[in-house]
Amino acid sequence: MIAAATDTGTFVPRIELGAWVESFISWMTDTFDPVFDAIKTFFESTYDGLAWVLSTPPFFVVALVLAALAFWARGWKLGIGTFLGFCLVAAMNQWDNAMESLALVIVASVVALVVGIPLGIWAARNEHVSRVVRPILDFMQTMPAFVYLIPTVVIFLTGPVPGIIATVIFAIAPGVRFTELGIRQVDAEVVEAGRAFGSTDRRILRQIQIPLAMPTIMAGVNQVIMLALSMVVISGMVGAGGLGDDVVAALQRVDVALGFEAGLAVVILAIFLDRVTSALADRAPVAKALKATR
């Protein structure tokens, strides 16, 4: 395993870390095959269902629904902009791709948040958990994103599932971090007030900490979704489907036209997701209460 260093000319021994990780992954694949199969089936069916819902109706029906969502979240300007934007996507013949990408983003974000927010809450309440979680998140965020695709392809082969899994790993960090930060930032005196009047910790979490941290948690949700979108495009490299496939294809063929159209569709999707989720953050009761004074 450990051979003398050669081409570097130093005396640092070659540590085969990569090989170890590789054998670990293949051991995992063999050992937990049924588990991975179950995970794969779950993600695949969820994704397929959602993609079917989004792409089966005529495009303008879905575009109208999304526009209505934007209108409800922020106002008529975003509503109209959303409708026009998605019409453009359809006009560029990217509608089906966009809906597949949207489905990937939604599934991956929901999983990332379902895991990330409770983990963030736990880390905020437990110093040990926080100390363990933080470096892991650092690692996950700084590792080049498409590196995650490699082991997921080994385990799940190609298709949407490795894309979703890699996206969850890549996008989960802000969900955990923002939640932990938000809960820690809640005014200690208000939490103390809850305790002083005899509330249980669970109730303090539900009635005080989460509502007060909600604007920060929602900022994390926004970040998770945006990271998920960027990763979904990258996972086009493993044939995850959607806009990423066209972006990768355009890159391989140096097809400027296709690249621009697929890229622009990503931008439209990104703006839509960003504006709607940040508008949802403003609708948190605490954010509204603070706004009322201005």
Binding site: E192, L212, K288
Partner: peptide, 8 residues
Amino acid sequence: QHFALLPH
């Protein structure tokens, strides 16, 4: 001291 009211 700083009232510690629930803002929402």
